[in-house]
Design a protein around this nucleic acid. Sequence first.
DNA 1: CTGAAAGCGCTAACAT
DNA 2: ATGTTAGCGCTTTCAG
Lengths: 335, 335
Amino acid sequence: MVTIHDVARHAGVSAMTVSHVINEHPHVKDATRERVLQSMTELDYRVNVAARNLRTGRTGTIGLAVPEVNRPYYGQLGAAIIEEAARHFLHVVIEQTGASRENELDALALSRNRMYDGLILSTVGLGPADTDLLRVDYPVVILGERIFDGPVDHVAMPNVAGAKAAVAHLVEAGCTAIALVEGVDFQETSVSGLRMAGFESALAEAGIEVDPQLIISVDVFSLASGVRAAQQLVASGRVFDGVFCITDTIALGMLRGLHELGVRVPQDVKVIGFDNIEEGGYSVPSLSTVDPDHAFMAKRAVELLVRRIASGSSGVDPQEVTSAFRVVARESSSG
Amino acid sequence: MVTIHDVARHAGVSAMTVSHVINEHPHVKDATRERVLQSMTELDYRVNVAARNLRTGRTGTIGLAVPEVNRPYYGQLGAAIIEEAARHFLHVVIEQTGASRENELDALALSRNRMYDGLILSTVGLGPADTDLLRVDYPVVILGERIFDGPVDHVAMPNVAGAKAAVAHLVEAGCTAIALVEGVDFQETSVSGLRMAGFESALAEAGIEVDPQLIISVDVFSLASGVRAAQQLVASGRVFDGVFCITDTIALGMLRGLHELGVRVPQDVKVIGFDNIEEGGYSVPSLSTVDPDHAFMAKRAVELLVRRIASGSSGVDPQEVTSAFRVVARESSSG
DNA sequence: CTGAAAGCGCTAACAT
DNA sequence: ATGTTAGCGCTTTCAG
């Protein structure tokens, strides 16, 4: 491994001068700089970030911890955050928490370990009870999903309002018996809980009573879950003419499941999801959904994190912003 | 930030003893260990990986560099590699290269910078001309995609054979005029080039001549590209009864595009993709594809990398393994 | 079983 | 404009 000293010796200067060149300090004579640069190239020198980090406490990298890397929604989120971070000359690395509370805490710990300058945590495992654990002295931004008064910056999704609008959209489209597919582990502050609240609120406003038989719980937010939910719904014998699935992935599975059972969408049943993942625009029929403005969320999350990193003021005066949303009406709810 | 010295002082021992406890060295009296552990908990101590790394040269983390995080195929790959790495007690971080040669080289550089113990690089930008740049002295495994005689371990996809089998499957299903949707930037060693070779080989064997009019090039492997390819194909006026898309994502777009144009799949045209992404099992109609055995690729890639890390023998006697494949026949090519 | 010394590669703060 | 000193937090080596 070639070090700064090797370069210094080769260029006939001190290590300090090499450091100055690397860090683009102004007071270096052009000729010297050239010579050092030349030596760096010849020796194929690369800075050792571990050593630099040990000294400066900065890595130039931020972490993004998501529940599942293999989920379109998080892929999209990752892409948006990478793009936004690049504007601030920050590198992004993504890691998976498996939606478990422990791993989310691990990610926090790793960040604190100074592997990253800060962490954007898309949490689903942590809840209001973990507020204290989030009270850390390094830059963290919580993204989307759950909502609670944490000690850190939080970019929230319009879960309740968005879900309400989605269901209201079904009502407007003429649905009177609307089913809900939600996550089994719902609490008041979880994605499921919040979107379910929106569902109930919309029905109440429309004067429709909630039919417990039309509420299906799934354990994971997967395509397979959507198919199973469709089967359960049809098997129940209950009539229904609309379904709100709390994620697009589930909704896409629902579309497939209903198709297999000979239920026509949107003629017999209208379907709407939540998240506006890219795939929803290309299914047959295309999927109506709620767009929570990923780009906005990514932008704000990175901005908040960058501010914390720059100011070193972690934990004081936590900000909370909620993105706007819009209902995207496509074929699955038309007619 | 609490350091090893703080813990040492608190526990009334030396920093060295704390280090021994952390690293589970055997020669520490139980009572001492308990005391140290207790202090670590009380002070909420976390090792500083930058410092440890500086000393040991190990981080316990491996990198996975993929062209695009927002692509189902890479999401799946990431999930499989994370799972496999966990078996070896290794952490995985994912970064995006944007399918550019420069960024792939950057990822290599970062890895060399000892941010990671090793790197799994899913390359599309690097080609045979870059062989020398891969001649690095730290653990690297090249995954899938392109194929060329590199100086590092390589886990390859069965691109040619798999594509050939896919097209042969269409022939068996009765197709006689088969279209191909491939990437515009194909070279002999690229994904497109290789899968195209399989396409041509299958047609030759079936005694069908390649119709250049039925070969559509797309610039990115996206759903939108698939839709556009369908439009081009139909607009050309050429008759065709089968389409091989070189990735499932394109194929899913093709399904949607054909649907919009009133072309029935599989009655009028049969479609097959490549990659076996989860979504293909849930589209309407479900998508036939080639399964390149992700799990195997992930397993071998991690194993090869771990061996290199352990032995420190980077660059000597590079291994090359190719995964097996199987054609998955679903609705889009049935009947 | 425990600890003292030394140094990993780099840079902040200060000379010169 | 360039160099000296010191030390980031940790662990390897070796001595007690």
